[in-house]
Design a protein around this nucleic acid. Sequence first.
DNA 1: TATCTTTGTGGCGCTCGGTGCCATTAGTGT
DNA 2: ACACTAATGGCACCGAGCGCCACAAAGATA
Lengths: 192, 192
Amino acid sequence: MSSRGRPVATSPAQIEAAAFRLFAERGFEAVTMSEIAAEVGVGRRTLFRYFESKNDIPWGQFDQTLEHFRAILRELPQDRPVHEVVQQGVLAFNEFDPAAEPPHRERMRLILETPTLQAHSVLRYAEWRSVIAEYVAERLDLRPDDLLPRTAGGVALTLAISAYEAWLEDPAADLADLLTATMSALRSYLAD
Amino acid sequence: MSSRGRPVATSPAQIEAAAFRLFAERGFEAVTMSEIAAEVGVGRRTLFRYFESKNDIPWGQFDQTLEHFRAILRELPQDRPVHEVVQQGVLAFNEFDPAAEPPHRERMRLILETPTLQAHSVLRYAEWRSVIAEYVAERLDLRPDDLLPRTAGGVALTLAISAYEAWLEDPAADLADLLTATMSALRSYLAD
DNA sequence: TATCTTTGTGGCGCTCGGTGCCATTAGTGT
DNA sequence: ACACTAATGGCACCGAGCGCCACAAAGATA
């Protein structure tokens, strides 16, 4: 609790804010870590202590939300089929305060429209997928790395990304509606 | 037809072979482009004229196979539901001569087990997904970037990757069986 | 107040992927 | 022999990322 040693010079949130400012101006690729460091008023070397890589900056505190995701799935009524609970969980996980929508849109636009970040995202989403895989495995008495749970995780992710892409294309769209619509699309595709 | 100018010093296939030799010895990350160049007996600069990046080397001639994939979908009997034709297409696309299995396994192991390549793969697979999206769109009279075709492409990819992961885990497994099993897993997951 | 300990900072130097530039090389055609 | 053409590969440069380490700024102790 007592803060010994040299006090911190910045915070993840501050770096994130500065970086987003520059990304918005010139695009992700055109901004260097040195420039972000200068904008924050901190050494370049220090940035790498707050974020593992430049690619991780747009993701912000995503990791910390995974425990929340697990809790959501745990606390949802469990008397429904697995896939329904998962779908409800995904919906709940992607609910947010309307005031937070504009920055969230910017973040997701950056992540989904920058090739480097599209690629990197597969690594960031790995744990998200496995949250689902673990839940599905537990419900169906399987192992998380069995074919079905793993596939369920992958499909859930793909559906969510499709929904987000559509959401970014339409400024008026509602994300929850699109998540539902994507699942419907899959069902009608598989129905014949 | 007539070969004017300086003759080529190497070929994509030769570079690929040399690179795989080194990757097998020391792992993907530990091998530098300079070392691959030396192994081929060519300048480092030249490698970048044959492959856009180090990440692209394990993918070999994947791009050229996409036209083949399109042809497969086109030539399959079209009197079945879209999703069935897509599934048949994916099966046909992943058929190969038994003799070619060991190198194919090595290639896929590299791609699916190296984090950098896992990430990069999302970019390489984009066109593969859109082959499916375009086919589905055409069959259902939609646009390729509509929700359903895009989701179909994404789901097909996720299923294929799940199948490949399982295939890599079991040396005796048959890929076609696993592709079928993955689709069954999805159906039973969504059934309830 | 002076010193010790703790902890974050940030400069330096390096590696590696990737790119633009351009002189050179090794062929073919006249 | 000479022009033409196209691939090669060296060189210099940039940016991400990392190991190392001296240093700064706080609290604790005496």
